[in-house]
Simulated scan of single mutants.
Amino acid sequence: MTELELTDLDADHQLLELSGTTLLIFTSTGCSSCRWARLHLPDLELPVERLAWIDAGNNGGLVSRYEIFHLPALFAIKDGQFYGPVQAIMNPTALTQALNNALSRPAEELP
């Protein structure tokens, strides 16, 4: 699984250009759940082509646009389309089901 580090400067361009499914994840170094996600999500067998990480502490513009209130915050993006939040406990089965639920909603433009 590919991993990307995105910032306020390049996230929109990258996310619009990527084909396939991306799990967009906002994290922060001071968040223990975020550290767990960083360590373990890449090893889970998830139905995504890539994980895209955004450091919430350094990218306030994206945090504001995506209306991030808690971390980690996960979102589904497929073929440049935004499918909204992915809310699940951090295990493969729950995340896969939440991703499938998100991708079944109508697509929107990126925030």
Score class of each variant (00 low, 15 high):
Gly20Glu: 06
Asn101Gly: 01
Gly61Trp: 00
Thr21Glu: 00
Leu6Met: 13
Leu110Cys: 10
Thr93Lys: 13
Leu71Glu: 04
Thr29Ser: 14
His13Tyr: 13
Gly84Tyr: 05
Thr2Gln: 15
Ile54His: 06
Gly57Pro: 11
Ser19Cys: 05
Arg38Asp: 10
Val63Pro: 04
Ser32Gly: 10
Asp79Asn: 15
Asp8Met: 10
Ser28Tyr: 03
Leu110Glu: 10
Thr22Met: 04
Leu110Asp: 11
Leu46Trp: 03
Asn58His: 13
Phe69Asn: 12
Leu44Thr: 01
Ala76Asn: 00
Ala88Tyr: 00
Leu99His: 02
Ser28Pro: 04
Ser33Asp: 13
Glu3Arg: 11
Phe26Val: 06
Gly80Asn: 08
Pro92Val: 03
Leu99Gly: 01
Trp36Val: 14
Gly80Val: 01
Gly30Thr: 11
Pro42Ala: 11
Trp36Cys: 07
Asp79Ser: 06
Leu16Phe: 01
Thr27Cys: 11
Ile89Tyr: 09
Pro92Gly: 01
Pro42Cys: 07
Phe82Asn: 07
Ile68Cys: 09
Phe82Pro: 02
Pro42Ile: 02
Thr22Leu: 04
Asn91Ile: 00
Leu4Thr: 00
Asp55Thr: 07
Arg105Leu: 13
Ala52Lys: 02
Ala107Thr: 08
Ile89Gly: 09
Ser104His: 11
Gly57Thr: 10
Pro85Ala: 15
Cys34Ile: 06
Asn58Leu: 15
Ile54Lys: 07
Arg65Trp: 00
Thr96Gln: 10
Glu109Gln: 15
Ile77His: 01
Ala98Asp: 03
Thr7Gln: 08
Leu74Cys: 05
Ala56Leu: 07
Ala73Gly: 14
Glu45Val: 10
Ile54Asn: 03
Thr7Pro: 01
Leu71Phe: 09
Ala94Trp: 06
Phe26Arg: 03
Ile54Cys: 08
Arg65Lys: 13
His13Val: 14
Arg50Pro: 06
Arg38His: 14
Thr22Lys: 04
Pro47Ile: 04
Gly80Leu: 05
Ala94Leu: 09
Leu6Arg: 06
Ile68Asp: 11
Ala56Glu: 08
Phe69Ser: 15
Leu41Tyr: 00
Val86Cys: 05
Asp55Ala: 11
Ala98Asn: 04
Arg105Ser: 08
Phe82Tyr: 15
Glu108Lys: 12
Glu5Tyr: 05
Leu46Ile: 03
Met90Ala: 15
Pro111Thr: 09
Glu109His: 07
Arg65His: 09
Val63Ala: 09
Ser32Tyr: 02
Trp53Ala: 06
Leu6Asn: 01
Thr7His: 09
Ala107Cys: 12
Ser28Met: 05
Ile68Gln: 08
Ile89Leu: 13
Ser64His: 12
Asp55Ser: 09
Gln87Met: 13
Gln87Leu: 14
Thr27Ser: 12
Gly30Asn: 14
Leu16Arg: 11
Ala98Leu: 07
Glu3Trp: 00
His13Cys: 10
Cys31Met: 09
Cys34His: 02
Asp10His: 12
Ile25Val: 15
Cys31Trp: 06
Gln87Lys: 12
Met1Asn: 07
